[in-house]
């Protein structure tokens, strides 16, 4: 009996450490894998473990959103791009060391920031993650703040995304001359008067062009 209760109590911690270590290991493999397609697969594993961590924190909505948006859409586009590339991996590895200085600087900055945040939260611990108040589900709690307190920010984000979308379309849209394209509206609007011409041909004369 006692052992069973121990297991039940340890389960969240055990799950957390499993998911967290899988996430870290997969994130490492993203940069360590030789094949970029494998890298994307590891990236998906990382996203998935992160979603698991969200579920553990009681944020199911965010977890499912993460899976839907990042795994279901963004990573698929990554895979698309990576699969289309024709990269010579040997050549790519040759210039690897020349990125070491700038990569090192970025890594140092990130590490310093993490240490600072960790130290600050140790000195002055915040209340941690606030769970949704009783009775309201995850999605209701988010909706309530998103569309009241942060309504303007939310709309601003939407506007930025719209601009980005229009920008992407403008950048890739090109008009080519001499390309035959289907004009569906014109096809549907075709009538007998515009499409059929009856020519009365007299015997023995042909069309006579």
């Amino acid at each position: 009996m006692g052992a069973r209760i121990m297991i039940v109590e340890m389960l969240p911690a055990l799950t957390f450490y499993t998911l967290a270590s899988i996430a870290v290991a997969a994130a490492f493999m993203v940069i360590a894998a030789r094949n970029p397609v494998h890298s994307v697969m590891y990236l998906i594993t990382t996203f998935f473990s992160a979603a698991g961590l969200f579920v553990l924190m009681g944020a199911e909505f965010l977890a499912l959103l993460l899976v839907m948006v990042y795994v279901g859409a963004v990573a698929v586009l990554f895979l698309f791009v990576v699969m289309m590339l024709d990269v010579d991996f040997v050549e790519m590895k040759q210039g690897f060391l020349q990125y070491l200085p700038i990569g090192g600087v970025v890594a140092c900055v990130l590490l310093t920031e993490m240490i600072l945040v960790g130290a600050a939260s140790l000195v002055n611990p915040s209340e941690g993650v606030k769970y949704a108040p009783d009775g309201t589900s995850n999605i209701e709690a988010i909706g309530n703040v998103l569309y009241t307190e942060y309504a303007f920010f939310f709309e601003a984000v939407g506007l930025i995304l719209l601009v980005a979308m229009v920008g992407a379309i403008v950048l890739t849209l090109r008009k080519r001359e001499g390309v035959k394209k289907q004009n569906v509206a014109a096809q549907i609007a075709r009538t007998r008067a515009g499409g059929v011409e009856l020519v009365d041909i007299k015997p023995g004369e042909g069309i006579g062009s």
Partner: peptide, 18 residues
């Protein structure tokens, strides 16, 4: 019996692409 059942369905079916 998930409260976010519809979202779960969408998330899982978007994974089927892989």
């Amino acid at each position: 019996n998930l409260n976010l059942g519809v979202l779960y369905l969408l998330a899982i079916s978007s994974l089927g692409v892989y």
